[in-house]
Structure formats: structure tokens, C-alpha cells
Simulated scan of single mutants.
Amino acid sequence: MQNCLIEVKISQEITKTGVNPNDVEDFYKQCLSVPNISIKGLMFIAPYSDNPEDSRPYFKQVYNLFEKIRKSSSSYEFDILSMGMSDDYRIALEEGATMVRIGSAIFGKRSYGNK
């Protein structure tokens, strides 16, 4: 069984992908009939901003969607809300994240080959 998260796309950034928030519930229901996968929750990456507080409204929206699906789901395993990265994880935790991605805080900023 492969554990999976559904990526939600709220912002209009072309660098972000995922399922439109209006389609997430139907997509989740469709995934329930796919053999060998188990949908554990949602993931979301907020648009980059120099001010982490700018992420808060996005995190609130994804949290509300997560809670709506979690409450209507018969699966007790829908319990992961992955949102927040090194720059905004504190805000994400305040808004209900159960998983954060803090790679650059541990390993440093990414190098994209610029010399």
C-alpha cells in the first residue's frame, strides 16, 4: 500500500501544481477506489513571500478544506496536513499543520548551479 497526500493548489503561481480546492473532495472520493494507495491527507505550498505572515490566509483555507474532508471521511487515517516550509512553518503550525518541511533550515539554501 502506498501512502499519499493530495497536493492542493490555491495560488495562481505557475510554479505550483495540485488539485483546485473546489475539486479536492471529489478527487479524494475517486482516489478511495484506487487499489494500493491510501490517501492520508493534504499538502500545500504557500506562495513565496518575504513576510511569513502572508501565508496565513492560505494555510487557513487549506486547513478548513482538510477538516471538512476529515470530518466527512470514514477513514481515521486521513490525518496529515503538510504545509509550511523553513520560512513559514511557525505560521503553518499555528494554523493546524501536522507536518512541515524544513529542509533549508537544516541543510541550507538550495544551490541552483549559479557559480
Results as ranks from 00 to 15, higher is better:
M1D: 05
Q2C: 11
N3D: 15
N3W: 14
N3G: 09
N3T: 08
C4Q: 07
I6R: 01
K9M: 10
I10F: 05
S11G: 08
Q12N: 14
E13N: 14
I14W: 05
I14M: 04
T15A: 15
K16I: 12
T17F: 12
T17K: 12
T17I: 06
P21C: 09
N22Q: 15
N22D: 10
D23G: 03
D23S: 12
V24F: 11
E25T: 11
F27C: 11
Q30I: 12
L32G: 03
V34M: 13
V34S: 08
V34F: 13
I37M: 06
I37Y: 05
I39P: 01
I39T: 06
K40W: 01
G41T: 08
M43I: 08
M43Q: 08
Y48F: 10
Y48N: 07
Y48S: 10
S49C: 06
S49G: 02
D50K: 14
N51C: 07
P52T: 10
P52F: 13
P52H: 10
E53K: 15
S55E: 09
R56Q: 09
P57T: 15
P57Y: 15
F59N: 01
Q61V: 05
V62E: 03
Y63Q: 09
N64E: 11
L65Q: 04
L65F: 11
L65M: 07
L65S: 00
L65H: 00
L65D: 01
F66H: 10
E67N: 14
K68P: 02
R70E: 02
R70F: 03
K71L: 15
S73Q: 02
S73L: 04
S73F: 00
S74D: 07
Y76M: 10
E77Q: 15
E77H: 14
F78C: 09
I80A: 03
L81V: 13
M83K: 08
M83N: 05
G84S: 07
S86P: 04
S86H: 09
D87H: 13
D88R: 01
I91Q: 06
I91F: 11
E94A: 15
G96H: 12
A97Q: 02
T98S: 12
M99A: 06
M99Y: 10
R101G: 04
I102N: 02
G103R: 05
A105V: 10
A105P: 04
I106F: 11
I106Q: 03
G108V: 03
G108N: 05
K109M: 06
Y112F: 14
G113R: 13
N114A: 14
N114R: 15
K115V: 09
K115F: 11
